[in-house]
Design a protein around this nucleic acid. Structure first.
Lengths: 343, 343
DNA sequence: CTGTTAGCGCCTTCAC
DNA sequence: GTGAAGGCGCTAACAG
């Protein structure tokens, strides 16, 4: 079925109230200057009685306007949204949009099928927000593809090189966060820190690494950062990479996870091997969320403003829609250092 | 702005390809029996060249059909979605819908403004899924309101009493989970278990309590379950409630949290007071997620099938849309016991 | 295989 | 203040 069953239209309401459809429309749109009070009452009463609901579809067609923003999540995994970071971003975004009577249209697409997806083939939202994962080249391909749609576009956690039209990036200050971590460790005389990062190229991660290096360079310390690549950020891969490193190198005096999960996986391995944290090795993560209060031991980390990023994107998009242009091409949100007991 | 700017229509494509709009429409809809190969090629080429994208709005109006499902999250907190459970449900739901070329339209609404919201006033999706929080009476009010919309409705984590039309509930087997917990604790000779629950009435929580009681009754054990009410499920409130209880009662031999956060908050308090877990008191949670692998100590809990619930709801809705009726009025998904080190 | 006609529900424009 | 005509972009039904 999935059909529009017998549903009251403006015409029905008009008929019942003994007025013309135009008058009903005026009432619906709050153009009260054009409608007598008595008429309005009658119309409103009939709307209620007939359980009338305006067809968004017909209205949007007529006024050539969309009241929804598309949130595109490009990821191979079908569980794309089941990620706390993305989740927070979507939450913030939805809230800002909803308050402005916009809707969020969620679409998860595997990279391969994006070109044939409804998003690309159909015109149905006023603009797009995108969270893209995958290798760098492919991510850029996706951005090109979405940009080709010639609609306002916001991309999360990316940095764009060339001049771009009608694209805005929203990201957190990963490099600044890296610096905070570096400063914190250097103040504790760390000399041989190791940072575990996933194999996959990811600008946020590179910025975190760069931030740590900034801190070392600025301090004039002779500390040296070693990068250890894990095949993925899964629990098993991280532990394997960490084990491989420990087996063939002297014990590092600090382990930095590219994110909290990585840090915890590494820390659990250290525990297993009898290494005392933080006495023998300090451990620090990245992208902590509310849940950090519940973790035991309390991991030192850098708090992600993911929810605010969503809000920021929402506001940016609404502004773009209203004024015709983004206020800024790149929105960078500050992160906050969170002191735990693991450093 | 937010206007449809100069955008190619079917007419433009038809003109450019030298055919009628109807032929273009046939190509778009894959009705190739009605279109010659040469013509099709020409049309497809022009679609590409003109960067044509079909207007979902116009199509939906014409065929009187919506290709989107509304996900309504009724909650006072603007951070509604920033909750792992909801997040997982939405992820599962979106995936199933997207594969069927349906879209998910997300809308978060505070209870108070629901009646005046776009959801209620406008007709724009084929059906609704709802996650409602708040006191029992108000939740029922929301369900009534949404049911009054006369569209297919799926509600998560509720049990409906009376006969309902076109409503389906999707929930996890909380009572079964409670039984698993009860059995586990009884097998360990627990006699004075305490269960910490939030003040707010919540059917899922009541079912968990009932399940534990079931287990006790079935076993014929003389164990007795004490319920401790916390003002909310926040860290502070849970610890306050727990402290209040401990100060005026003998030490329980097991603490059951109505969910994992509650359990962990309680456990941290026990730690602070020097109570050894699990030797002096066992601790057990509810609604574990992937993150349980990262928690330390590894909490014993019952794993929530939240993601599957989303998938289940998606399938149920698609079936309803296709056949005109829900296959089942109440979908109950099994939970899985997860053995940790805290029991 | 291709084209013509008509209309989905709403709102802009203009007349009364 | 209110109403009548017309059309947004698309496709069902029917002609050819």
């Amino acid at each position: 079925m999935n059909k529009l069953k017998q549903r009251a239209t403006i015409k029905d309401v008009a008929l019942a109230a003994g007025v013309s459809p135009m008058t009903v429309s005026n009432v619906l749109n709050g153009r009260m200057q054009y409608v007598g009070v008595a008429t309005r009452k009658r119309v409103e009463h009939e709307i209620e009685r007939l359980n009338y609901r305006r067809s968004t579809t017909a209205r949007n067609l007529r006024v050539a306007e969309q009241r929804s923003i598309g949130m595109v999540i490009v990821d191979e995994s079908p569980a794309f949204l089941a990620d706390f970071f993305t989740c927070q971003v979507v939450a913030g975004l939805t809230n800002v949009l909803n308050v402005a009577d916009y809707t969020l249209t969620l679409q998860g697409v595997p990279m391969a099928s994006l070109a044939r997806s409804m998003i690309v083939r159909n015109y149905e939202v006023a603009g797009f927000c995108a969270m893209i994962s995958g290798p760098s080249t492919e991510r850029n391909g996706v951005i090109q593809l979405l940009a080709g749609l010639e609609q306002p576009l916001i991309v999360f956690q990316e940095e764009l090189a060339g001049p771009s039209t009608d694209i805005c990036t929203v990201r957190q200050d990963d490099r600044g966060g890296g610096r905070l971590i570096g400063d914190h460790l250097l103040a504790r005389k760390v000399r041989r820190p190791v940072m575990i990062v996933p194999m996959q190229h990811w600008p946020a991660v590179e910025n975190r690494v760069a931030g740590v290096r900034d801190a070392i360079a600025t301090s004039g310390s002779e500390a040296e950062l070693t990068i250890v690549h894990a095949n993925s950020e899964s629990f098993a891969d991280v532990q394997a990479a960490m084990a491989g490193y420990l087996d063939s190198h002297p014990m590092p005096d600090a382990v930095i996870g590219a994110n909290d999960q990585i840090a915890v996986a590494a820390m659990l391995l250290l525990n297993e091997r009898g290494v005392k944290v933080p006495d023998q090795a300090r451990v620090i993560g990245f992208n902590g969320f509310e849940s950090h209060r519940y973790s035991q031991p309390h991991l030192t980390t850098v708090l992600s403003p993911a929810y605010s990023m969503g809000e920021c994107a929402g506001r940016a998009m609404l502004h773009r829609l209203k004024t015709g242009a983004f206020a800024r091409k790149d929105e960078v949100l500050p992160v906050v250092f969170e002191n735990g007991v693991t450093t």
